[in-house]
Nucleic acid binder design. Structure first.
Length: 471
RNA sequence: GCGGCCAUGGUGAAACGGUUAUCACAGGGGUUUGUGGUACCUCUAUUACGGGUUCGAUUCCCGUUGGCCGCCCCA
């Protein structure tokens, strides 16, 4: 048999290829078995937020949380899945969000449910179902979490995206609107992002109705000048024509009626007061009479946080937006209750941070590595690891490696200051080696004292100041 | 949802339609088993997937999937 003849060949050369061949075969078999696709690809518009991105994300999340707390907003976590009619009713049946972007399906118990496209409706639902109107008003809540919209993906736009939102229920005073805007502006200030606040008022449903009629009749004679898109808007959602980008339309808009002129006195006064408050706290804002928001529940104040661009790249520059929704609770069957809120698009903020080169402070790296030789040393290592952890000294290890060489290599890559080496000899003697990675100097010490000694050493040398500059 | 551009290992790139798909970096393993940062060796891609044209396709065509850009819309 040929196999017998091959046996005398140096074992290394023969064993390796054989092992590899077996592995290859196995993989092939598996591939053929699960042949549908070689690897699983991400669903379109969905993404992983990788460990290396978490620094920026944490910066954003932490900032949001600390500001929310300092304005006494309470955290609420809302379900991702809700009955689909919750959104149809509130966001609006005719809106794109509900009409074509919502993930709707029937669940196993045959209910029509939807992946939340936004969370204000849920917050309002929660306000009602937990009888929050019996709490001191306003009820101020904030949340962060994923939202889902089946839109065409683009940079800064995903089908699963994260929003942080703030909602204030129960008080219709303009100061509530103003403080929410201040809160949002503070978040951006803290993050070091230049934004401008665009603001407008769309009044009550009643005066908006009157305005829309006027706007439609203004455009009617010019219908033939409008693009297909704008014609459609005029019919479906006339308000949207205000932020058209078509030149012909823009020209016509110059002479178009302004919504601000159609506000009733109460609405006008509310809006004026909001602006006054903003001036009081020196939040610069831009009055944008064409600002319209895409959700049906808005009333009175609407606003957006827009990235102050250095020209070009104007894509996805709206980092957040919101407004007042005085009819929302009632719409959902609650007692008439005013409310106001806004949401922030987290990936857009992270993206802006990225573009600006803002780097979060790096997480302090561990400065001690534990290298071990043999199982006895591993056992001791496991215990030592806990001791160090309790002493507040993070230690990294490579328990999976056995060769000292490889472990030192890892230690080096991690850039630790000290490496602890524990071999058979040391285990027997009850000692351990402390190696200074920079000088290479080693010292043998009593294991029982090693935590103290290491602590002292780390304090003495305040870590070389070669903090990696942004890359 | 509409239109355009694109698709090679973990990453960044290379390959007039023609030999075992090249390079760098990163990563794993090793250079006789207790010592790192250098060197050397070695491993890691059915060229996104599926069809077609061709003697032959990474290279041409079509479809699918995915990414990016503009529109719609929105965060």
């Amino acid at each position: 048999m040929p196999l017998k003849k091959e046996k005398p060949v140096p074992p290394k050369k023969i064993t390796k290829p054989v092992v590899e061949k077996v592995v290859e075969k196995k993989e092939k078999d598996e591939e053929e078995g699960g042949k549908s696709s070689k690897t699983f690809e991400l669903l379109r518009g969905f993404r992983d937020i990788l460990p290396e991105e978490q620094g920026r994300w944490n910066l954003v999340r932490d900032t949001v949380r600390s500001i929310a707390e300092s304005y006494s907003f309470d955290r609420i976590d809302l379900p991702i899945l809700e009955r689909s009619d919750l959104f149809q009713k509130t966001v609006g049946k005719a809106t794109d969000i509900v009409e074509k972007e919502m993930y709707v399906f029937t669940d196993p118990s045959n209910r029509s449910v939807a992946l939340r496209p936004e969370a204000t409706a849920s917050a309002a639902r929660a306000y009602i179902s937990h009888g929050m109107l019996d709490r001191p008003q306003p009820v101020k809540m904030w949340y962060v979490g994923p939202m889902f919209r089946h839109d065409r993906p683009q940079a800064g736009r995903y089908r699963q995206f994260y929003q942080a939102g703030f909602e204030s229920f129960g008080v219709d005073e303009p100061i509530v609107d103003a403080q929410l805007i201040v809160l949002g502006a503070q978040i951006f200030r803290e993050l070091g992002l230049d934004i401008k606040v665009e603001i407008n008022s769309i009044g009550t449903p009643e005066c908006r109705q009157a305005y829309l009629a006027e706007l439609t009749s203004y455009f009617r004679p010019h219908r033939n000048k409008l693009s297909e898109d704008d014609k459609r808007r005029l019919q479906k959602n006339p308000l949207r024509i205000l932020d058209s980008k078509e030149e012909a339309t823009l020209e016509l808009l110059q002479g178009a009626p302004q919504i601000l002129d159609w506000l009733d006195d109460k609405s006008k006064e509310h809006f004026m007061k909001v602006l006054e408050f903003l001036e009081e706290v020196e939040i610069p804002y831009v009055l944008n009479p064409h600002l319209v928001r895409g959700l049906d529940y808005y009333t009175h104040t609407v606003f957006e946080f827009v990235l102050a661009q250095d020209e070009g790249d104007k894509s996805q520059s709206a980092l957040g937006g919101g407004g007042r929704y005085d009819g929302l609770i009632q719409l959902l069957g609650g007692r008439p209750t005013p409310g106001c809120g806004f949401a922030l698009g987290l990936e857009r903020i992270v993206r802006a941070l990225d573009a600006k080169g803002v780097n979060p402070p790096e997480r302090s790296k561990p400065s001690v590595f534990f290298a071990q030789l043999g199982d006895a040393a591993r056992r001791v290592g496991l215990k030592l690891f806990e001791e160090f952890r309790r002493a507040g000294v993070p230690v990294v290890e490579a328990f999976g490696k056995s060769a000292l060489k490889g472990q030192l290599e890892s230690a080096n890559k991690l850039g630790v200051q000290l490496t602890l080496i524990l071999g058979q000899k040391e285990v027997l003697d009850g000692t351990i080696i402390i190696r200074d990675m920079e000088s290479g100097a080693q010292e043998i010490v009593d294991v029982k004292k090693v935590v103290q000694i290491v602590k002292k050493k780390l304090h003495k040398e305040p870590a070389p100041a070669e903090a990696p500059v942004s890359e």
